[in-house]
């Protein structure tokens, strides 16, 4: 895995040096990349892993994998700018104008990197098309998320498929597509299930993260909050009034312990944990049914640990 990191980092460094000509853009762009490299690199690892699992050989895959990581980084920066959170991240310490400019540069660069990778033209066109379609889908999902325009669990799952799960699907599919030249709907299905499970896990965490970005205080509609609202008794309807903005934060903030008790007693965490685990089991079952070697299955399954 050491060579994985070195290869990805080298691809990113070379590309930024070639296209980010203005010194400040290169320096700050690289600083953002360096910060990203300290994370798990799940997406680029998934691209390389799927390329190898589907009989792809050689080092050409590192450039598309690095492109995937740039796409994710650019969308992360834009998401943080829009949500005004994750203040500790480097890009949130830059001026928003510069951070946005870097994000736009990285997003465009991700497509440029993919397009100039060393693969047959027909595979590259299909890969770039897939990436562009997913970015557009994520922008649609992000709009729904920003507007908090979610009134049912179906709306929530649709938004997750467009945003977070869709990005994981793209990382996996680009690996298989470049290896085989074909679009693999089975890979799409299991990657989507893993992405949904991971998003539900985040949303459970964000509901009970009272000190930072609690989705409750932000009135954010997610699977846990939708269940909570659905489960309220008559005496607890003030919570749905808060979510519908009929009550202000000041009117409910002192009732935190009561809110926590209602969350516990309603089964919100239990319900969403079961939903999360159901999607995770779907992922396990679908990977197990794939016609690839046991070793690759094991490695793909290990990515969810």
């Amino acid at each position: 895995m050491e060579s994985f990191m070195q290869n990805i980092k080298q691809e990113l460094k070379d590309t930024l040096r070639a296209y980010f000509i203005v010194p400040h853009l290169y320096e700050q762009g690289m600083a953002c990349v360096e910060e990203k490299l300290r994370e798990s690199m799940l997406f680029s690892r998934m691209t390389v892993l799927h390329y190898r699992a589907f009989w792809g050989t050689g080092n050409e895959i590192y450039r598309p994998a690095a492109a995937i990581e740039l796409m994710i980084l650019s969308l992360d920066i834009i998401d943080d700018l829009q949500d005004k959170d994750n203040k500790a991240m480097l890009w949130n310490q830059l001026s928003p104008e510069i951070a946005l400019n870097i994000a736009l540069g990285l997003l465009t660069l991700s497509q440029q990197m993919l397009m100039t990778s060393d693969f047959a033209p027909d595979r590259l066109v299909a890969a770039v098309r897939l990436m562009n379609e997913q970015v557009l889908s994520a922008i649609n999902g992000q709009t729904t998320d920003l507007l908090n325009d979610i009134s049912s669990e179906e709306d929530y799952i649709q938004m997750v498929k467009q945003k977070s799960a869709g990005l994981l699907v793209t990382a996996c599919l680009i690996g298989t597509l470049l290896a085989t030249g074909e679009y693999n709907s089975e890979v799409r299905e299991y990657a989507e299930q893993l992405g949904i499970a991971a998003q539900i896990k985040n949303d459970i965490h964000d509901l009970v993260d009272w000190e930072n970005k609690s989705d409750f205080w932000n009135r954010k509609k997610t699977l846990p909050t939708l269940y909570l609202i659905h489960s309220l008794t008559e005496e607890q309807k003030w919570i749905s009034d808060y979510f519908e903005e009929r009550l202000s934060l000041e009117e409910v903030v002192h009732r935190r312990e009561e809110i926590q008790r209602i969350i516990e007693q309603s089964g919100t965490i239990l319900y969403t944990s079961v939903r999360m685990r159901t999607h995770y089991y779907n992922y396990l079952d679908l990977v197990e049914s794939m016609v690839i070697s046991a070793n690759w299955k094991k490695q793909i399954l290990a990515m969810a640990d």
Binding site: I204, E264, Q265, L270, M276, Y280
Partner: peptide, 10 residues
């Protein structure tokens, strides 16, 4: 000790 407060990861 408090199952209803537990969080279950995969």
């Amino acid at each position: 000790n408090q199952p209803m407060r537990a969080t279950y990861w995969f």
